[in-house]
Design a protein around this nucleic acid. Structure first.
Lengths: 216, 216
DNA sequence: ATGTCTATTTTTAGTCA
DNA sequence: ATGACTAAAAATAGACA
């Protein structure tokens, strides 16, 4: 009896895949129905399966089309005043969201830069291929990296004084060039950076940002 | 502690309905994702909720795949296993951040569209100034807004049957008319928006469902 | 309202008839 | 295969912070 947690990957076995498909299809359709019922919301599900002759569609499109075709007249002006009151809040929200988004974009860019750095270190890519616009950012990332690395080395060397002097690494703005040299030579350096990378990533929280959405 | 089996009926309480909606929406999308993954089958889910400004559509794999493929087409070199693990972790982080960022961008766009709508309603701006690319999105926002308005009014009129007939409001394409206050060109405007909306929706549906086709 | 926590319900993977 | 069964895993209603 092996009732274990299943890994989320394509099921190779034909028959069990089909069995799973049928069970889960029923599950989803039930869930969709429940959501629609409980919350009074039009929900549509389309499953274009090879097991069913025609793509499974739930439910009637009537609901959706209904909503869409409800197009007549509406006196909006009396609502306008209320709506306008929201403007200031809207602007606030927009700028807030913009800022958050900008932050994320920046973090994202940094991650990409790290990737590039690794490629350079391993000789997979030469710095000449880095986009010109990205060079500055890449340098920043690497500098920060080296700073962290140094800090870490200092901590380590406190525990082992003998090797401390020989391992120091110096951050520099002209990082782009040293990368090449490092890439061809120092495996130890790569290992060190990898370690540091792991530590750094552990501390990073990328996806925790959220928007407070409003309701009228 | 009342954790009891819930009755399958429309949840009257506003806040708990919304809470349930959010939980279950996430549940369904997850389930859909799992079905698609496990069985290699195209699955589409559309939730036209009053809680989200634009209908929730799954999947939007294009973007995810974009990010992943960009990174994955990097040549695989001789790297230690640690390095590879590290890289995959990086990719994960990047795609996660991208996803979050994309979501934020979308929300941000919606907020901007709301702003535009308000500007139109107050006559501060004419629709002719709206960016052509934004027309579709603007139409989406306006329609969704009207839908929400309508639902709200329906609910209200249920509670007050006597005045229901007088308070009843019908959503319409000609909303644009009050919005625009430009007279003759208003109809053209709203038609344009509607066309774009429809077109956009169609493209969205088709695009998202075309993915992952397999032959049997 | 937003997130976290659990008791309970619901779904489901694997097995067998 | 198809349906029933069941233990394990997952979802979630309600409470609370």
């Amino acid at each position: 009896m092996t009732r274990q947690k299943v890994k989320m990957a394509f099921i190779e076995n034909e028959s069990s895949r089909k069995a799973t498909y049928k069970k889960r299809k029923r599950g989803i359709l039930k869930k969709a129905n429940e959501l629609a019922t409980l919350c009074g919301v039009p929900v549509g599900v389309i499953i274009d399966s090879p097991y069913d002759l025609t793509p499974e569609v739930w439910p009637s499109r009537e609901d959706m089309d209904n909503v869409l075709s409800q197009l007549q007249r509406l006196p909006v002006m009396d609502r306008t005043k209320k709506m306008l009151n929201q403007e200031s809040y809207l602007k606030q929200s927009i700028s807030k969201a913009s800022e958050t988004c900008k932050k994320l974009t920046k973090e994202n860019k940094e991650l990409e830069m790290k990737e590039v750095m690794f490629d350079c270190l391993s000789g997979k890519t030469s710095p000449s291929r880095i986009e010109k616009n990205d060079l500055g950012a890449c340098g920043n990332v690497i500098e920060q990296y080296l700073r962290n690395l140094n800090r870490r080395i200092e901590i380590l060397s406190k525990n082992d004084g003998a090797s401390s002097s020989s391992v120091h690494v110096v951050a520099s703005t002209s990082v782009a060039m040293p990368i090449v040299e490092l890439g061809s030579s120092s495996t130890a350096f790569c290992d060190m950076i990898r370690q540091q990378q792991i530590q750094s990533n552990m501390n990073q929280n990328v996806g925790s940002l959220d928007l407070n959405q409003q309701q009228w």
